[in-house]
Design a protein around this nucleic acid. Structure first.
Lengths: 113, 113
DNA sequence: TTTACACCTGAAGATTTCTTCATTTGCTAA
DNA sequence: TTAGCAAATGAAGAAATCTTCAGGTGTAAA
């Protein structure tokens, strides 16, 4: 054991760093979902989704309950909503900056050519 | 182009999901650092650090300035501090829960055996 | 107790990401 | 101009992660 905190942080972010997993987290931030509901939204194979849910579950980010023959998933802590919101803000900033840079580059290319 | 937003988010988190890169981000959240200063703190090969700085730079999370023959790095937006703080909170929650679960498991093992 | 449905798991090849080594670039000062 | 340091880059093998396929588990209704 004795994983340094920065390793734990890296693992945490890597866990979120997958398109299907991030979609799951965003859907669960809205409300609880059963697996088959997620499957409708996410468009990957059922077994793939199951694997990704397993990754999220084992890392402690989501929790499972069985009810009426279905498995429901939930985020394990509401702070995750804040995290995704903050991330969204940063991402929009970054994208904006990159587009600004792109415009600059193409305008200087115009000047040169 | 036209990367769906959830792909961009996944990329963003994956970028943070590496032990050296997360350490860089945390150091830069404290203050600007020159590459050789980061190198003292992080204990990986110089060229490896350079690669990881490249990943962060290309994703727009950090920015570079050259001064006195050294290259200084900075976080590109202060919101990153909030993100890391929120992540830290979630991580501590998750770890606490996991330790609770571990204690439960070992006490029920005791009861059984 | 069998059928059906919802979901999970293991294995394995394909793909991506990491780390290292060798080399190159950019700058500053002699 | 050249010497020397700081940092970046390219290539390539090693390692980790993804996706799919095949089969398995759990549960509820017939």
């Amino acid at each position: 054991m004795a994983v340094p905190l920065y390793e734990a942080k890296a693992n945490f972010f890597r866990t979120l760093g997958h398109p299907a997993r991030i979609r799951v987290m965003e859907l669960l931030c809205i409300r609880e979902h059963a697996v088959h509901e997620l499957l409708i939204e996410i468009d990957i194979e059922a077994s793939n989704l199951s694997h990704q849910l397993g990754v999220l579950r084992r890392s402690g980010l989501i929790s499972q309950t069985r009810r009426n023959g279905q498995v429901f998933y939930n985020i394990s802590t509401p702070e995750i909503r804040d995290l995704l919101l903050t991330a969204r803000g940063i991402l929009l900033d970054v994208i904006k900056d990159q587009e600004g840079l792109k415009r600059e580059l193409s305008s200087s290319r115009r000047k040169v050519s």
